[in-house]
Structures are given as C-alpha cells and as structure tokens.
C-alpha cells in the first residue's frame, strides 16, 4: 500500500483517510461478498465482476456508510442492488414471489410436507446428511431469486431476520415467509433427490 500511496496523487490529500478507512473496514468482507455474489450469479466470472462493481459503488458511497453499523450487511445490500439492476430482465420468478409473500409466515412454517412424506422411513431427516454439497448448492441456486436471497443470507451467511430485512428492503414478516417458503421448496427438492438416489424410500413429487 505504501507504494500505491506514492503513485497516487489523491493519496496525498484528505482523500487518503477516506480510502484507508474503506480499505480497513470494507475490504476484509470481500470473501463474504464474493461467496454471496457467487451464489447470486452462479459463475466465477460473473461473481468477480459483481464483487468489483459492488466495491466500486460502495467506495463511492462510503460517506453514506454509518461507522459502527454492520459493514457486511451494508455491502450485501449494495451487492444485491447491483445484481438486481443487472438482471432486471430475468425477474419472472419475483413476480410469482410477490403474489405469495403476502401469506402469514406462521401459517407457512408448520406445514412440512417432506417431513410427513419421510415420516415412516426416516422420521428425523437423517437423509439430508447423505446429500452431497454440490447438490444442495445447486438446489439453492435454482430457487426463485427472492427465496434464494433469503436462504443464502440466513442459512449460509447466518444473518439475522432483521439484517436480512434491511438488505432486502422488506418487512421482517416477509423475510420469514420467503425464508420458510424457500426452505420448504428446498426440502422438497432434496427429498426428491434422496429418493432418486436411493438414500431413502418413498415417492418423488406430491406435496
């Protein structure tokens, strides 16, 4: 960094403070943002471009970042926005989500069709452990955008409902309904896969 400072005229002025604080606070989250971007775009090249755009945008908006708040969430918010803007034409899934997200989260969380389906052969869902990681990630990738986003942020990145609500700009109740729906959809797919692979007996499909 020292050599860069010498090369860069701006670094001599007040701008260097701005840049140094950005490098100290935001750059350490690059791996997390990269993983998020990888799940959103599905390709390494796509993810790298998205991460670069995210950090450039974040850098330009660094004045608007409130020190002490979670920088990671803030970066995820930007990453999501950039991603959505780039994929506006591929938003068909979201329309479907909009229609169903109104439902009460509580009413969604307790209907577990897969649990009912595997109750006799594998009541505690041990089959989930047999499923290879690639299959799980692929199943997540195939979820509709907004379910996928909620599942990634909660179940892979371990963020709270509140943080997810801020990133996705939706009420906490909607986070819950999208997350729970996304999880149920995943369970269904993974159960189908487990049956197909012979990890568990049962029939595929059929909610």
């Amino acid at each position: 960094m020292t050599s860069e400072n010498e090369d860069t005229p701006a670094a001599a002025g007040g701008d260097s403070v701005h840049r140094v604080s950005f490098i100290e606070e935001a750059i350490p989250h690059m791996d997390a943002v990269y993983r998020f971007a990888l799940r959103l775009t599905g390709t390494q090249d796509g993810a790298e471009d998205l991460v670069q755009d995210t950090f450039l945008r974040a850098y330009r908006a660094w004045d608007q970042y409130t020190p002490g708040t979670r920088c990671k969430s803030w970066l995820f918010t930007i990453c999501r926005n950039v991603f959505l803007r780039q994929h506006e034409r591929r938003q068909r899934h979201d329309e479907i989500v909009q229609e169903t997200a109104q439902e009460d989260a509580a009413s969604l969380s307790h209907e577990a069709p897969v649990f009912a389906a595997s109750k006799d052969s594998d009541p505690e869902g041990a089959f989930f452990k047999s499923i290879v990681d690639e299959e799980i990630l692929e199943a997540i990738d195939d979820l509709p955008n907004e379910y996928r986003m909620a599942v990634i942020l909660s179940d892979l990145e371990d963020l709270s409902y509140n943080e997810i609500a801020e990133i996705m700009e939706i009420p906490v109740g909607t986070v819950k309904s999208r997350l729970f729906r996304g999880r149920r959809q995943l369970q269904k797919r993974l159960h189908g896969y487990a049956v197909e692979m012979g990890y568990i007996s049962g029939t595929v499909g059929d909610q």
């Binding site: 690059m30 943002v33 991460v51 595997s118 989930f128």
Partner: peptide, 24 residues
C-alpha cells in the same frame, strides 16, 4: 430433528470460497 438436520446440511454445504488474490 428433521428441521435441524436440514439446516445443518445447508450450513455444511456452504463452500468456504474466497475471492482470488487477483480479484483483490
């Protein structure tokens, strides 16, 4: 147990991928 095994499987599947040094 069922929900827990499911959520554990998701968490375990997360690749601990990192941004490449070139990207940084």
């Amino acid at each position: 147990q069922f929900e827990r095994h499911f959520l554990d499987a998701l968490q375990a599947a997360e690749d601990r991928g990192t941004a490449s040094p070139e990207l940084k």
